[in-house]
Simulated assay, not measured.
Amino acid sequence: MTARWLDDTQQRAWRAWLTASELLPRALDAQLQRDAGLTHAAYVVLAMLSEAPGRSRRMTDLARRANQSQSRLSHTVARLEARGWVRRERSVDDGRGNLAVLTDAGWDVVREVAPGHVDAVRAALFDPLTAEQTAVLRDALEAVVEALDPDATRRVAHGGDVETP
């Protein structure tokens, strides 16, 4: 069987993706560390809780939304609990599931940090692009997501029930 190698355009796109996928999280982590002493992974947990009805989510749902394993999420939530930004509770619905709940102090952190984080995302990802390039990037990424998850069972909808700071 003959390998189907990437053509020059595909190779350049792949290499650019690899580099961007390393540099973008690093830049966002640096901003969050500087502004709030937070990792990007911890901020995503806070953000996912801030967007949830009642500012709480089942731990299993939160792990999926934050793209973290159950074990990693448990450690992240423990660190956020130690800072008083999140608390864990038993689900009142069935008494079995565990919820992570954003505290008022955690909500204050999200409201304080979110504007700088949005500025960092804009500066790192969108400012270098034209409006047309942004639309092409969106379309390209949506096509990749569709190919990776055609039945939409692994992706998480972003938006909708968003509570903005």
Rank of each mutant, 00 (worst) to 15 (best):
S69W: 08
T130D: 06
N67L: 10
A124M: 08
V101I: 09
D108K: 04
V162K: 13
A135Q: 11
A105D: 06
D149L: 08
G106Y: 04
W85K: 08
E132S: 11
A147H: 13
A63R: 14
W107E: 04
L137A: 15
R154Y: 15
V145Q: 11
L99N: 01
L148M: 13
V110D: 01
A124D: 06
G106C: 12
V109H: 02
H75Y: 14
H158E: 12
N98D: 03
D151R: 14
H158C: 10
A100W: 04
G116Y: 03
L125R: 00
A114E: 14
R138A: 14
E89W: 01
N67Q: 12
A157C: 07
G95Q: 00
E81N: 05
A143C: 07
E89P: 00
S69Y: 08
E112M: 08
V136P: 10
G84L: 03
A157L: 10
D108M: 06
E89Y: 00
A124W: 05
S74N: 14
A147D: 10
G116N: 05
P115M: 10
A120G: 01
R96L: 10
Q70Y: 11
R111P: 00
S91W: 05
R88E: 01
L99T: 00
D139I: 03
R155W: 07
A114F: 09
A143W: 06
D139T: 06
D139G: 07
V162W: 13
E146I: 15
V144G: 05
V118P: 04
L125T: 00
A63I: 12
D93Y: 01
A147L: 14
R111E: 02
D108H: 05
L137T: 12
V92D: 10
A120P: 00
L99M: 02
R96N: 08
S91C: 06
D94E: 02
L99G: 01
G116E: 04
L141W: 00
A143Q: 09
R65I: 06
A63Y: 11
A123L: 14
P115G: 10
V92Y: 06
V121A: 04
D139Q: 05
A131Q: 03
F126Q: 00
L137S: 12
A82M: 15
R96F: 08
L102P: 11
T153S: 05
H117T: 15
D149S: 09
D108C: 06
A143L: 08
S74T: 14
R154G: 15
G116K: 04
V77G: 09
N67S: 12
V101M: 06
G160N: 03
P128Y: 07
H117F: 15
V136N: 15
W107R: 09
A66T: 14
V113Y: 01
L80C: 12
V136C: 14
L73C: 07
Q70W: 11
